[in-house]
Simulated scan of single mutants.
Amino acid sequence: MNYEDIDITNNEAIHNFEFVVDGHRSFIDYKTKGDKIYLLHTEVPAELEERGIAGVMVEKAFKYIEEKGLKLVPLCSYVQSYLKRNPGWDRILALHGNI
């Protein structure tokens, strides 16, 4: 299935990037400080597992981060592994950052 036509939503009130597929909410929990955004945790419900949702959601979050001119601090293990598989996104990484 193609998820390109589904937008990611930045729910600033609860610091989540949200991605809803078939009525199920996946999310990336984050924290911001200055121009840095810390991706803390990625979660996909059991109903959506094994469908590539996490990767699509991370890619969309990276595009949002780049468009907003933010710098990424990847604290989530899934986000870190995604970066290893997609090194082109290193361009949005913060050199270093502390919460």
Rank of each mutant, 00 (worst) to 15 (best):
M1T: 10
Y3K: 05
Y3E: 00
E4P: 02
I6H: 12
D7L: 13
D7T: 10
D7S: 14
I8D: 01
I8K: 11
T9R: 14
T9I: 15
T9Q: 15
N11E: 13
E12L: 10
A13Q: 14
A13P: 00
I14Y: 04
I14F: 07
I14T: 14
F17P: 01
F17Q: 11
F19E: 04
F19L: 07
F19T: 06
F19Q: 03
V20D: 11
V20A: 04
V21M: 12
H24I: 00
H24A: 12
S26K: 01
F27I: 07
I28Q: 11
I28T: 02
I28V: 08
D29C: 02
D29A: 14
Y30C: 03
K31T: 10
T32F: 00
K33I: 02
K33H: 14
G34H: 09
D35T: 14
D35N: 15
K36C: 11
K36V: 01
I37D: 05
I37H: 04
I37L: 03
Y38A: 09
Y38K: 11
L39V: 01
L39G: 04
H41E: 06
T42S: 07
T42R: 09
E49C: 05
R51V: 00
G52V: 03
I53D: 09
I53E: 08
I53A: 08
A54L: 12
A54Q: 11
A54C: 02
G55R: 10
G55A: 09
G55T: 11
V56T: 15
M57P: 07
E59T: 14
E59A: 14
K60M: 10
K60A: 08
A61F: 03
A61C: 06
A61Y: 12
A61S: 15
F62R: 05
K63A: 12
K63M: 08
I65V: 07
I65G: 02
G69Q: 12
G69A: 09
G69K: 12
L70F: 06
L70N: 09
K71L: 15
K71A: 13
K71F: 05
K71V: 05
L72E: 13
V73F: 07
V73C: 06
V73Q: 02
V73T: 03
L75Y: 13
L75W: 07
C76Y: 07
C76Q: 06
S77F: 09
Y78D: 11
Y78I: 01
V79F: 07
Q80F: 03
Q80M: 12
Q80D: 08
Y82V: 00
Y82I: 01
L83F: 06
L83E: 10
L83Y: 03
R85M: 05
N86A: 01
N86P: 06
N86V: 04
P87V: 08
G88T: 04
W89T: 05
W89R: 05
D90T: 03
R91M: 02
R91Y: 00
I92F: 02
L93F: 06
L93Q: 05
L93H: 06
G97Y: 10
I99Q: 14
I99T: 12
I99K: 13
